[in-house]
C-alpha cells in the first residue's frame, strides 16, 4: 500500500509509535521500579523515573539466594534443551528424509501436534505419580524430563523445516562416495543446519526458562525453585513487594529480551507453534 497522502502517512507513523510505547511501557515501569525506593512506589505518583535511585532491591535479592534460583533455571533450561535436541534432531531427520511404512510418519507428526496442544495440567496428576515412583519428584532432573512434554514437540516441528532446507544433492553426493548415515549427519547435515539448530535451541531454552506450572507442581524445596516459581512466591507473599519483584523480573527477563531480534526471525520463518 502506498499510504496515500502525507498526512495519512504521518498519522500511521504516529499510531505505530504510540502502540509500540504502550507495549513497552510495562517493561520500562518494571526496570524503573526495580531502582525505586518503596516510599516512591507506594504513592499516587504516575512518574516513571525514580527521583532517588536505589540498589536495595537487588541487594535484598542477593540475600534471598537469587543466584541459586538462577542457576537452577539455567540447569533446567540447558538440560531440557539438550535432551530435546538429542531426541528431536534424529526424529526430524528421519521424518523428512526416510520412508516409513503405512504413513507412520504422518501419524507421528499429528500425534506430536496433539501433544503440543494438550493442556499440560491434564497430564499433571499421572506425571506427579510417575516422578514419585522414580524418586524424581523435587529434583531438577525430573523437571528436565517432564519439560519434554512442551519442548520436544516444539523442537521436532521447528527442526523439520530446517532439515527440509538442506539440499538433498549434498547428501546424495556423499552417499555415492559411500558415506554412512552417521558420517553424512556429522559432516553434511549438521554443519548446514547449524543456524537452524541454534534457532531451535534458543526457542526451546526460552520455553523452559519461562515454564511455571510443572515447576510449581513438581518442585517443593525452595532451594530447587526456578526463577518463575521464586517470583510466584514473592507475588503471593506480599502485595506490594514491587521493588524486589521488579528487580527479579528484570533480571529474569534481561537474557531473553536480548534475544528478541532472534525470536522475531524465528517467528516470521514459520509459526509451527508459537512459544506458549
Amino acid at each position: 500500500m502506498t499510504g496515500g497522502s502525507s498526512a495519512g502517512a504521518w498519522a500511521r507513523g504516529a499510531a505505530t509509535y504510540l502502540a509500540a510505547v504502550l507495549f513497552l511501557l510495562p517493561i520500562v515501569w518494571m526496570a524503573a521500579t526495580s531502582l525505586r525506593p518503596p516510599i516512591e512506589y507506594i504513592s499516587p505518583s504516575i512518574s516513571l523515573w525514580p527521583s532517588s535511585a536505589t540498589l536495595e532491591h537487588y541487594r535484598a535479592l542477593m540475600a534471598d539466594d537469587v543466584a541459586g534460583k538462577a542457576l537452577n533455571s539455567i540447569i533446567v533450561a540447558l538440560g531440557a534443551t539438550s535432551l530435546s535436541l538429542a531426541a528431536g534432531f534424529p526424529a526430524a531427520y528421519a521424518l523428512v528424509r526416510l520412508r516409513f511404512p503405512a504413513r507412520l510418519d504422518m501419524a507421528f507428526l499429528v500425534f506430536v501436534l496433539l501433544v503440543k496442544l494438550t493442556p499440560p495440567i491434564s497430564l499433571a496428576i499421572p506425571l506427579y505419580q510417575v516422578l514419585r515412583a522414580l524418586s524424581l519428584l523435587d529434583t531438577l532432573m525430573g523437571l528436565i524430563i517432564v519439560y519434554q512434554v512442551y519442548t520436544l514437540p516444539f523442537a521436532i516441528w521447528m527442526l523439520l523445516g530446517f532439515v527440509r532446507d538442506v539440499p538433498v544433492e549434498y547428501e546424495e553426493a556423499a552417499l555415492v562416495d559411500g558415506a554412512s548415515l552417521a558420517r553424512r549427519l556429522v559432516y553434511i547435515v549438521v554443519p548446514v543446519m547449524i543456524p537452524g539448530i541454534i534457532a531451535t535451541a534458543v526457542f526451546v531454552m526460552i520455553l523452559s526458562w519461562n515454564e511455571f506450572a510443572y515447576a510449581l507442581l513438581f518442585i517443593q524445596s525452595p532451594s530447587k525453585f526456578t526463577l518463575p516459581t521464586f517470583i510466584a512466591t514473592l507475588i503471593t507473599e506480599d502485595e506490594t513487594f514491587w521493588g524486589k519483584l521488579s528487580a527479579i523480573g528484570f533480571l529474569a527477563s534481561l537474557p531473553i529480551l536480548l534475544l528478541v531480534g532472534f525470536v522475531q526471525k524465528g517467528l516470521t520463518r514459520g509459526f509451527g507453534g508459537g512459544l506458549k
Binding site: I27, N210, I235, L257
Partner: peptide, 15 residues
C-alpha cells in the same frame, strides 16, 4: 512490540 511475548508469564503477572 514482540518484547512482551518473550517474557515469563510470572514476570508479566508480577508487573
Amino acid at each position: 512490540i514482540i518484547m512482551p511475548y518473550v517474557l515469563s508469564t510470572m514476570v508479566v503477572t508480577a508487573i
